[in-house]
Nucleic acid binder design. Structure first.
Length: 262
RNA sequence: GGCGGGGUAGCCAACCGGUAAGGCAGUGGUUUGCAAAACCGCCAUUAAUGGGUUCGAUUCCCAUCCCCGCCU
């Protein structure tokens, strides 16, 4: 596609962004990368924890540069939130603060909920209060900005409707059985293709990268806690669940056209 | 062949006379700043099979089949 459109590929996968996770994140191979220009693959140290905002700062200039050269940027990847930042822009909300998060993480959820309810009842009412992440972020916005998260969000939400009309996008769809078979094949190939050595070589991972599918599973196998079969099956299961969440996410991204690969 | 233990959803598993916990997997969903994350909903009218006891059994009894352990 990139060759036909005289395009260049820009990564939109949260984990392929990192150096050292290539195998486990199924990043493009050297051969693929030499075929057509690829951007934002392996550009971050796995010790740093990037977020969607950081990604946007990285991606915008790269995309602008491609366009300035008269080429077509082709954004590829599966991190729905990152992609949405690209298409909708960032909301005027404060960036996450590691120290504050650590402090919030040490408190009981009920405590955070109570504080959010007094600080910003409107936001509390529309937040999934069982989800610590969401409660914590809402609270973080209030504490960092000194304003109500609900107010900041409302101002932005109204602008999101007008999505740039020049965007064109596709979601690849496969039937579940096929998807599951391919996942199993992919996992097997990873383990045969150096994933174990790759994980063994990783040190000082950010809490973020620690979550990459395969890291925990392969470590457990190397430590002798689980056998190879179990390791493979756990990675498969985690990948299947991830793929399902991607389907859910992209299903409501109406500008994306489904392309069935039966 | 004998003795003992056991057969509960795809897998693991609890309850054990009053009408099937939980976990995993699966499935649907939430989602603007940890997102390959975090969280939420759904998911056995049915307990190896057949018979009996009982107002009522997955739970008690009998038979059969199967599995595991020990003995021969």
């Amino acid at each position: 596609m990139a060759e036909k459109l005289d395009g260049e590929i820009v990564n939109a996968d949260a984990f392929q962004l990192y150096r050292g996770l290539e195998i486990i994140s199924a990043a493009p191979s050297e051969a693929e990368k030499s075929q057509v220009p690829h951007h934002l693959y392996g550009v971050l140290e796995p010790s740093i924890a990037a977020d969607a905002g950081n990604y946007l700062h990285l991606a915008r200039p790269v995309i602008a540069d491609i366009q300035a050269r008269g080429k077509t940027p082709i954004i590829a990847g599966g991190s729905g939130l990152y992609l949405k930042f690209l298409t909708h822009g960032p909301a005027p909300l404060p960036q996450g603060d590691a120290q504050l998060r650590a402090a919030l993480d040490s408190r009981p959820l009920a405590d955070l909920v109570a504080e959010l309810e007094t600080l910003d009842p409107v936001e509390a009412a529309r937040t999934a209060l069982k989800n610590r992440r969401f409660v914590s972020r809402a609270l973080e916005i209030c504490l960092l900005s000194g304003q109500k998260a609900s107010t900041l969000r409302d101002g932005w939400e109204t602008q999101t409707a007008k999505l740039a009309a020049h965007l064109r996008g596709y979601v690849i769809q496969r039937r579940r059985p096929d998807l599951h078979t391919r996942i199993a094949r992919r996992t097997h190939a990873m383990l045969e293709g150096g994933a174990i050595a790759e994980v063994a070589a990783l040190t000082g991972l950010s809490a973020n990268c620690e979550k990459a599918i395969g890291v925990r599973e392969i470590r457990a196998m190397v430590a002798g806690e689980i056998d190879r079969i179990t390791c493979e099956e756990r990675i498969n299961a985690a990948t299947r669940q991830y793929a399902k969440r991607q389907e859910s996410w992209f299903r409501r991204e109406l500008w994306l056209k489904p392309v069935s690969m039966e």
